[in-house]
Design a protein around this nucleic acid. Structure first.
Length: 802
DNA sequence: CGTCAAATAATTTTT
DNA sequence: TTATTTGACG
């Protein structure tokens, strides 16, 4: 063995080594938060390439976010560069000049890793479709070409709305287009066709959805467009039906790696199976020589089930990929349980919390670090005091530095609406902050307009984009004109573009309204002359100039239009960058990138500011100090999840994700009263999650401002306490193992954990948890087959039984 | 055809 | 409260 082995392996712990050294066959890596899973992934790829002569051309590495893909690629480059530096130049990478480092990395990227497919599910499989979509034979006879448009959420929503409202003439009050879109999306993510839905439908509503699904698909095809879900679903059908195509991709991708496997949905799972095992069921597949499937994930961090992600796919991996030729031996498993991020108090808290979930893979995060500080509880009067308490903490923790380090702090919340109050407080104290998420760069109006021009130039069937720009900038084309043209297009069954591009018949049908239309078609035909020989950046420039879009913005001269102009310049920069980075930078490719890029990944490393984001957005990140806000029943956990155990467990995982983001300190805050939307105040009950963290790990503190003056001892009365002894006993037991005596409310009936009750709807049950205090308590009651419910004893139709 | 004001709805959102 | 969408009017 050469010394490269040493180098690749030396910084890994035993579990990581086992993962990295696994070569052929299936492997599941259960990777807890902060356990170095990206390290395992990148080192494994490097090991395949460098020590096992695997051609990068034969590797497929799939992630869920562009950011993760980018990071993986960058780390892989460095790994390979380090090796080359050592072997070829005889000096460690770190001693090379920065210029030489970059040179080497670029070299590696362009030569060694050129054919390595690493990216998001959507990016990679849309790429596959750009090659092979024309080989797809749809059972309903629908077709697409390789110039297909990708519709984002808004575009496809518009289309569904059109179909439901006009095509099917349904009352949008009874059949909410948003709900229908969601239902269709859900079906697509579970690999169901419209026919499948039709067969399953046992009520009117489901039949309507199946019908809408079928029409929506036809409509997409007429527009030569695909939505996000299709980028995964269509490849599944294509690979299933076309042996040649399937064989090609199956043979090509001998080593498949999937990151965040707990977030895969059924359709993605089908894709992975088709690529890995071809037409064979994976547990019947035996040709594992020179072939592997390597999935990494953490069921405890599955927080996207509302987008049809299903972590049971991860839990089932060992069974799915078991070896039928060897005693039905289960697929191998490696657990990464050593956490390098958080202090041990934080980890113990997170572990105790997640123990309350029932659907898990047994796993405990082990700390590699010192005990650290206790988690701090901030009990506040209302959401304003909460914000004030947080900013006060922020300032006091930074007082000891003459240079405040704001970037060490993150404030996490369950819903976007919570950010406003926090912002106000931060502004008041002049604390710099950055809000994550929100409007995508490519979702800005002017950017979407410009991109829509490109889309129509490439794909003239794309009516959504055509209608978006036909009167932008103003050409005096109104609603009635457009409606007439649409009707004509439908009647003659000719694409809208061809209808408006036929000057003569246009004059006949709409007379003088055709003036604006002609202006538009002349512009587009002019632009079409350039499409063959110019890159996306130049065409964008031409679009903005020739359409008058830019000059319109210039004449208005407002601050807003200046912003717009900057954004458009930014778009051209993005196109230029795309041309520089891409081997064959055609407009179609740029459009795919534009559709599949969020600016979370392009956003430059934020300056020294506090980060504000939703708990969902925080997954995969880490911060020195983390605030988790709004820990109240109905907010976190959200009211939609509170009486459905599986949803409640997902909220708990979300809380687990939040806590495990922190390296040094965790602050948990809740407000006793919160203005919801509108003026009304609502008294709150502290979150059940607070009661699931061992009391001795939490330090209740007196908030320094905002008049939130409740003391620790008074506060803790409000929570159900969990004794250490009971907690230890509860480990490895289901949720109802945590039991304690609770002194009930002063008035009315007092309740005890363990009491049996009878509910008029759910039948007999047992109280497994009590939280809140005084008049405001809630009971968690477990009803045999009906699962657990959270009930208010003052309202719920229950009575005690023996 | 375009603008303004009333009406309406409100978890989370890797692509 | 706010963001977005609808529809009446000039």
């Amino acid at each position: 063995m050469h010394q490269t082995n040493n180098f690749l392996f030396k910084s890994l712990n035993n579990a990581q080594l086992n993962a990295v050294k696994h070569i052929n066959g299936p492997l599941l890596v259960v990777a807890g938060a902060g356990s170095g899973k990206t390290k395992a992934l990148t080192h494994r790829i490097a090991n395949l390439i460098e020590n096992n002569s695997v051609d990068p051309h034969n590797i497929l590495a799939v992630t869920f976010t562009n950011k993760a893909a980018k990071e993986m690629k960058a780390r892989l480059q460095v790994l390979l560069a380090q090796e080359i530096a050592l072997n070829q130049f005889g000096q460690p990478w770190s001693t090379l000049k920065e210029f030489d480092q970059n040179q080497l990395r670029t070299n590696i990227d362009q030569e060694r890793l050129r054919d390595l497919w690493i990216g998001t599910f959507h990016a990679l499989f849309s790429r596959l479709l750009r090659y092979d979509i024309e080989k797809y034979q749809d059972p309903e006879g629908l077709t697409w070409t390789r110039q297909f448009s990708i519709y984002d959420e808004t575009d496809s929503q518009t289309l569904v709305k059109e179909i439901v409202g006009q095509d099917m003439s349904l009352d949008p009050k009874r059949f909410d287009p948003k709900k229908i879109k969601r239902a269709i999306s859900n079906a697509k993510n579970q690999c169901f066709t419209a026919n499948d839905l039709e067969e399953k439908a046992d009520n009117h509503f489901d039949k309507v959805i199946a019908d809408a699904y079928r029409r929506y698909r036809i409509s997409l095809s007429k527009n030569n467009a695909l939505d996000f879900d299709d980028l995964l679903l269509l490849p599944v059908f294509l690979l299933r039906q076309n042996d040649l195509v399937r064989d090609y991709w199956h043979k090509r991708f001998q080593h498949v790696l999937v990151d965040e496997y707990q977030d895969t949905n059924r359709t993605q799972y089908e894709l992975i199976k088709l690529i890995t095992a071809g037409n064979t069921e994976p547990n019947k597949f035996c040709e594992w020589n020179d072939r592997s499937i390597f999935v990494v994930g953490d069921a405890d961090q599955s927080i996207y089930s509302f987008r049809a992600a299903d972590f049971r796919i991860l839990i089932g991996f060992q069974e799915d990929f078991k070896n039928s030729s060897n005693n039905n031996q289960k697929a191998s498993l490696v657990k990464l349980e050593e956490n390098y991020r958080s202090s041990s108090n934080i980890l113990t808290a997170a572990n105790s919390l997640i123990e309350n979930n029932t659907e898990r893979i047994d796993k405990v995060l082990r700390s590699t670090r010192e005990e650290g500080e206790l988690l701090k509880l901030l009990s506040c009067d209302d959401e304003i005091s909460e914000a004030e308490a947080i900013t006060t903490k922020l300032r006091s923790l930074n007082n000891y530095n003459n240079q405040p380090i704001w970037k060490n702090f993150a404030i996490l919340y369950r819903t976007r609406a919570q950010s406003r109050v926090l912002e106000e407080s931060l502004v008041r104290w002049r604390i710099p902050y950055t809000i994550f998420g929100g409007l995508r760069f490519y979702d800005r109006r002017e950017v979407k307009d410009a991109v829509a021009y490109l889309k129509v130039l490439v794909n003239s069937s794309d009516n959504i984009s055509l209608l978006r720009i036909i009167n932008v900038p103003r050409r005096g084309i109104g609603k009635t004109t457009i409606q007439k043209l649409n009707e004509l297009s439908n009647k003659l069954n000719i694409p809208l573009w061809e209808v408006i591009n036929d000057k003569q018949s246009l004059d006949e049908t709409i007379g003088r309204s055709s003036k604006g239309i002609n202006k538009f078609t002349e512009l587009m035909n002019d632009l079409l002359c350039y499409i063959e020989n110019s890159g996306p950046a130049q065409i964008l420039q031409l679009i903005l100039e020739k359409s008058g879009y830019l000059s319109d913005l210039l004449t208005s001269g407002s601050e807003e239009s200046e912003d717009r102009r900057n954004n458009l310049q930014e778009l051209i920069n993005a196109a230029t960058q795309f041309e520089e980075e891409t081997e064959n930078p055609d407009v179609e490719g740029f459009l795919s990138t534009a559709a599949l890029t969020t600016d979370n990944d392009t956003k430059k490393n934020h300056p020294n500011s506090v980060t504000l984001m939703t708990l969902h957005n925080s997954k995969g990140l880490e911060f020195q100090n983390v605030f988790i806000t709004g820990l109240e029943q109905g907010l976190f956990p959200s009211h939609r999840s509170i009486d459905t155990p599986s949803l409640l467990e997902e909220e708990r995982r979300l809380c687990y994700v939040g806590i495990t983001r922190a390296k040094e300190r965790v602050f948990l805050s809740h407000a006793r009263e919160r203005r919801l939307w509108g003026g009304m105040r609502e008294a709150t009950i502290p979150s059940i999650f607070l009661s699931e963290i061992p009391e001795e790990l939490i330090d209740g503190e007196l908030p320094q401002s905002g008049g939130a003056s409740i003391r620790r001892d008074r506060h803790l009365d409000r929570l159900t306490r969990v004794d250490r002894k009971d907690l230890n006993e509860s480990i490895n037991r289901p949720i109802n193992a945590v039991r304690k005596l609770y002194s009930g409310p002063s008035k009315g009936k007092s309740w005890l954990i363990g009491d049996k009750v009878i509910h008029s709807k759910f039948g007999k049950g047992e109280i497994i948890h009590i939280f809140g205090s005084g008049e405001k308590i809630s009971l968690a009651v477990k009803f045999g087959d009906k699962g657990s419910k959270i009930l208010d004893p003052r309202l719920a139709p229950i009575r005690a039984i023996n």
